[in-house]
């Protein structure tokens, strides 16, 4: 009797993911049995999240700002209202969020972090990359941002001012990168294709 138990233990307990998966399953079962959540509700939350929260949203916003000077001004003045023009919302999450959009210029580079956890505009940038949540990034980008940006392959000349924004739950920051040279004739959709999630966080030029 102890043999199958042990062999099951060796197979499953040796793998952290299956231990964690069991704990998660148990918690979900208990909460469902208590009438607190339903499996269908969780499915719906995940479906909507994965279908709607993506960096292509932020890229669209940036491309519009590049081609439409009026929109750019509105975006920098009131991010929430401006992204709503494109059908995006910072609501719908668990609490209302202020969207503050900051713009890179030839003399200023912005970079975003959340030192205390991993706050970030999920609706516009999609799920955050692992590095954004890492202690290495959170601890060092406020202290030595130029070094950290070098680790991403982004070299900033000394004359460019670096502004780090330590985000909190109530305010989420997004960066408008500089429009690359030589893109004057490009259509808005093609411009959006140039913008990366790193660019929207400030760890890449675009």
């Amino acid at each position: 009797m102890s043999v199958p138990t042990r062999s099951r233990g060796q197979r499953e307990d040796g793998h952290p993911d299956s231990r964690l998966a069991r704990r998660q399953r148990r918690l979900e079962e208990l909460l469902e049995a208590a009438g607190v959540v339903t499996g269908a509700e969780l499915d719906a939350i995940l479906d909507r999240y994965l279908a709607t929260a993506k960096p292509a949203n932020g890229a669209r916003v940036v491309a519009r700002a590049w081609v439409d000077e009026g929109f750019r001004h509105r975006l920098l003045a009131d991010g929430n209202a401006a992204v709503a023009e494109l059908g995006f919302s910072m609501g719908g999450g668990i609490q209302p969020q202020l969207l503050r959009v900051v713009e890179n210029t030839p003399r200023l580079h912005n970079v975003v972090v959340c030192t205390l956890c991993s706050c970030y505009p999920l609706a516009l940038l999609g799920p955050s990359p692992s590095w954004y949540r890492s202690e290495a990034y959170r601890s060092r980008v406020v202290r030595r941002p130029r070094e950290v940006l070098e680790e991403f392959g982004l070299h900033l000349p000394g004359h460019v001012e670096v502004r780090v924004w330590d985000a909190s739950a109530e305010t989420r920051y997004m960066v408008v990168p500089r429009r690359p040279a030589g893109t004057e004739g490009m259509a808005e959709d093609a411009l959006a294709g140039l913008v990366t999630r790193r660019g929207l966080i400030g760890t890449a030029a675009v």
């Binding site: 205390l116 999609g126 799920p127 590095w131 202690e135 601890s139 060092r140 950290v148 330590d166």
Partner: peptide, 20 residues
């Protein structure tokens, strides 16, 4: 959790695989 400004976590590993 309050790691801002701490030293010792090493360089950032910028690898990402795009999975949520």
């Amino acid at each position: 959790h309050d790691v801002g400004g701490m030293e010792g976590f090493g360089p950032v590993d910028p690898t990402e695989d795009g999975r949520a």
